[in-house]
């Protein structure tokens, strides 16, 4: 398998500047993200605090970033990274489309994870799963609840329902999708309520082993799938040190995390949540990754 020098996760200002810096240093770079770069950036009405790029909308700033990328011949890989494994001497990154390997890793995912449900993290892997397409086959003849935070979760629930005996679906949509009642195939039972927590029935096994607590009651099942837009970063990268609130990655001045060869940049490392701070950290993170590559040849 091809092994990249640097893999970057996230295409906001932190990730992009890391990509540009690493490319300038002749490193083989892959950057995962989205064509529109960053939803936060595109939504910004007015940007006035980025050196040299002033009195512009976020979309205009994004357009300038894109021109810079094109000029440097950097293409964004539009795949969502669902798992990263620090494999010792390299990093392995999983997307729906495949597995990638890189010698160093720069995390620049931003901080938009949302709040975890009480009990969710503690029971992960013990009845709680984040990936219906990964664990579906273990639910043959069993029941499951899917807590869906985005409409993309509907397809995963349907995939699960092809194998599982019974699937419940609890939509937790926000914004314009808030009041949508999803129409799902394979006999999925849609429950219009709000999930408030997850518990394990210690004394019970089988179809009542897990309990999803709702505002108006509860659902019992073999397992619970929680499907969000993005994964909390310490779940994405097992063993990564985060702060007490679990929101920010712990880094030093060189943007190094506790995992050798893994660096972080941007909102993910803490406030202020500003583009120019993110871009500067991306630069530092990439230079640190280059130094790491040079000393660990």
């Amino acid at each position: 398998m091809k092994r990249y020098d640097v893999a970057i996760v996230g295409s906001g200002p932190g990730g992009l500047n890391a990509a540009i810096t690493a490319k300038t240093r002749n490193k083989d770079v892959i950057i995962f993200g989205r064509q529109d770069l960053s939803s936060k950036l595109v939504k910004a009405k007015h940007v006035n605090n980025y050196l040299g790029l002033f009195d512009m909308s976020g979309a205009e700033v994004a357009e300038r970033f894109k021109q810079h990328l094109a000029n440097m011949e950097i293409a964004i890989t539009e795949e969502r990274v669902t798992n990263i494994l620090p494999a010792g001497s390299y990093f392995s990154l999983l997307t729906k489309e495949g597995i990638y390997e890189a010698k160093t890793l720069i995390l620049a995912t931003g901080v938009n994870f949302g709040e975890l449900l009480p009990g969710e993290k503690e029971l992960l892997g013990q009845g709680v799963s984040y990936c219906a397409t990964c664990d579906a086959f273990l639910y043959k003849g069993k029941s499951a609840v899917v807590v869906g935070y985005t409409r993309q979760a509907e397809a995963e629930a349907e995939f699960l329902a092809e194998t599982a005996e019974k699937v419940y679906y609890v939509p937790m949509y926000k914004g314009k999708d808030k009041d949508i009642v999803p129409e799902l195939a394979h006999g999925i039972e849609v429950v219009m309520d709000k999930a408030t927590g997850i518990e394990k029935n210690e004394a019970e096994a089988g179809s009542s082993a897990m309990k999803l607590l709702l505002e108006n009651g509860e659902i019992q099942a073999h397992g619970i799938f929680v499907l969000r837009e993005s994964t909390a970063v310490d779940v994405l990268v097992p063993g990564l040190a985060v702060d007490e609130a679990g929101k920010h990655v712990m880094v030093d001045r060189s943007m190094a995390t506790n995992i050798p060869g893994c660096f972080a940049a941007g909102d993910l490392t803490g406030r202020p949540y500003q583009y120019i701070k993110a871009a500067g950290e991306g630069n530092v993170a990439a230079l640190s990754a280059v130094a790491y590559l040079d000393t660990n040849k």
């Binding site: 669902t82 798992n83 494994l85 494999a87 010792g88 392995s92 999983l94 597995i99 990936c131 990964c134 664990d135 086959f137």
Partner: peptide
């Protein structure tokens, strides 16, 4: 299992 992506990542480790 062969269909499990994370398993294929962990295998080489």
């Amino acid at each position: 299992a062969p269909w499990c992506g994370p398993c294929r990542m962990l295998g080489p480790v």
